[in-house]
């Protein structure tokens, strides 16, 4: 029996290692390649030990290009979008969860269905609105565009989370003399904190990673990092070194952020899905 247990664990770990290889080899290859010269990068079998060079990074961050600006734009847009969607989503999600409206189910479904709109088809109408409001090429325009898919997501996620917070909590607080709104901020929001964090990370990720909206609604000066990545595929060659470095830079903030709040995220996600 003991023996079988050991064998089973060995098999499990072997399978786990395989899955990890599948998940991580591309990312490792990307990071390693970004530190190689182009000639080394193309060598097969790949060289695992080499003198790393950070020329590409140096060129990106301190060279003549605008990469730091791309990064700043990405950061501003994602953070502002996330903050906005979270503010609206937390309040609205609570309203949706507790509201008991006549058309609650329809409203709730309508909310989630707005996230399903196929992007290429909604770009023109959004463009028309934005150009009337002089928002083309502005950060505001891009924030609004990201709100179209992040707000429904935040609303929907938050409403599932709030449904899991027992209504007794806020009622108890109200008996203690809090107003409903105060009770909400003081008691309900903290109780749903893991859910809020999970939602925030996912919203941040969706905005940070978007390419299609950014390609149309940004102008020079407001372009984001995924645009920078796409520009490396040009008519006169693909700059693979920079592409790999840009990829590494794009995933880093998300990675750090995701790892920092991993516990919350897992708890948040399970809270939303488990009764």
């Amino acid at each position: 029996m003991q023996h079988r247990q050991k064998l089973l664990h060995a098999v499990l770990y072997a399978l786990m290692t395989l899955s990890l290889l599948w998940a991580l080899v591309p990312i490792l290859h990307m990071i390693l390649s970004s530190m190689k010269t182009q000639v080394n990068m193309f060598e097969m079998p790949p060289r695992l030990f080499f003198t790393p060079t950070f020329d590409v990074y140096q060129e990106m961050f301190f060279g003549r290009g605008d990469f730091p600006q791309f990064l700043r734009n990405s950061l501003v847009v994602s953070v502002v979008t996330t903050a906005l969607c979270l503010l609206l989503g937390v309040m609205g999600g609570f309203g949706l969860a507790r509201g008991n409206f006549r058309w609650e189910k329809d409203v709730s479904f309508w909310v989630i269905s707005t996230r399903m709109a196929p992007i290429p088809a909604v770009i023109l109408p959004l463009y028309l609105i934005f150009s009337k409001l002089n928002l083309i090429g502005t950060t505001t325009g891009l924030v609004l565009a990201y709100t179209t898919f992040n707000l429904p997501f935040a609303l929907w996620m938050m409403s599932t989370f709030f449904k899991d917070v027992p209504a007794d909590l806020e009622e108890a607080a109200m008996i203690d003399g809090c107003g409903k709104f105060r009770a909400f901020w003081r008691v309900v929001v903290p109780a749903a904190a893991p859910g809020i964090v999970a939602t925030a990370v996912l919203c941040l990720m969706f905005s940070w990673n978007d390419y299609l909206f950014a390609s149309i609604f940004t102008g020079r000066g407001t372009q984001t990092v995924p645009i920078a990545a796409s520009l490396l595929v040009s008519q006169s060659g693909i700059k693979w070194g920079q592409a790999m470095a840009t990829g590494t830079v794009i995933i880093m903030p998300m990675l750090i952020c995701g790892l920092l709040v991993r516990k919350y995220m897992v708890r948040g996600l399970s809270m939303g899905a488990v009764k």
Partner: peptide
């Protein structure tokens, strides 16, 4: 570790 690919932008 297994979570990492989730954070890679689709274009990347």
């Amino acid at each position: 570790l297994f979570m990492l690919p989730l954070f890679v932008a689709p274009i990347v």
